[in-house]
């Protein structure tokens, strides 16, 4: 009886961990993929119209190139805030307030952040 309990106690967390870890990895990948899609979509992020980014062709140059994002934004929240509402940092910013004005959804903001941090 005691043995059985021990097995459950020992294996339980393992059993729970294994599939969850897989799910998390899949979810991350899915978010990055969604982020890329939204970033390139002309009616949504349309980042390429102002930023050089990834392998996008004919980028604009109104804003800085989106490279080394993890180094430039060690704090994820700072990057998220810049996409959600750049007016908070600079009310004259020419970057559209993507989250504040509902140009993209909350989830899509998170996805773009996930994607940008891979660049």
């Amino acid at each position: 009886m005691l043995k059985r309990i021990a097995v459950v106690v020992l294996l339980g967390p393992l059993l729970m961990l294994a599939p969850t870890a897989g799910l998390v990895a899949n979810a991350d990948e899915a978010m990055v993929a969604l982020g890329k899609e939204v970033a390139f979509d002309r009616r949504k992020g349309n980042c390429l119209s102002c930023h050089m980014m990834d392998n996008g062709s004919l980028p604009g140059n109104q804003g800085p190139a989106l490279v080394a994002m993890k180094a430039r934004f060690p704090d994820r929240e700072v990057l998220r805030a810049q996409i959600y509402n750049p007016l908070e940092k600079n009310p004259h910013s020419i970057m559209p307030p993507f989250g504040l004005h509902g140009i993209i959804s909350e989830k899509e903001v998170d996805a773009i952040v996930d994607y940008l941090l891979t660049l």
Binding site: L48, S49, G60, Q62, I94, P97, H101, I103
Partner: peptide
């Protein structure tokens, strides 16, 4: 507008810059 641009944003400080091509 939803994109929050003033005329001057594109045709003042932004003039000469590229939007896509």
């Amino acid at each position: 507008g939803q994109l929050n641009f003033a005329c001057i944003d594109c045709h003042g400080s932004g003039s000469g810059n590229l939007v896509r091509a």
